[in-house]
Design a protein around this nucleic acid. Sequence first.
DNA 1: TTTAATGTTGCCATATATGGCATTAAGTAA
DNA 2: TTACTTAATGCCATATATGGCAACATTAAA
Lengths: 74, 74
Amino acid sequence: MEKSELFKAVGKRIKELREAKGLTQVDLAGKMEGEFDTTNVSRIEAGRTNPTLYNLYRIAVALEVDLEELVRVF
Amino acid sequence: MEKSELFKAVGKRIKELREAKGLTQVDLAGKMEGEFDTTNVSRIEAGRTNPTLYNLYRIAVALEVDLEELVRVF
DNA sequence: TTTAATGTTGCCATATATGGCATTAAGTAA
DNA sequence: TTACTTAATGCCATATATGGCAACATTAAA
């Protein structure tokens, strides 16, 4: 699997999980532990960046899913 | 779960999977798609850095496991 | 129409992951 | 002892994720 494909797949998954909970990108950033800019939520969902483990983890916690769920892209 | 705990847990998992395959850190870096420095294998396994999604993915491929396996730390 | 909410994108600054190399240490075998 | 392998770590340079803000487009509601 190619790099940008991976990013897009994970981003899509995050977006789906977020919308399933009825959250906006602003809501998600706000629910995350510590600081997180909404700009980055957009970038990660769009697959335009290579997110770090810790940010994926914080997103998973905010979305109330296991980290595995976010990276189950096959 | 705290940040450095997460890194250590994922690092430990990588180390276990690597050793289960009888690979050295050099072997693992060598098997990874593209370039990857052995220094970083050590850093990631030790939990001293916050690895990116793409590098976790490349490690998973080299270790012949799903990415989910690497982040199943609970 | 105006207003507000949502998301994307561009820009720049900062923080940090990684590349790359050298050193160090521990283990193992000669 | 020496020589080799493996891994950890320190240093510096570079690449890039993120912070933070502004501008823009879209949609929906008044």
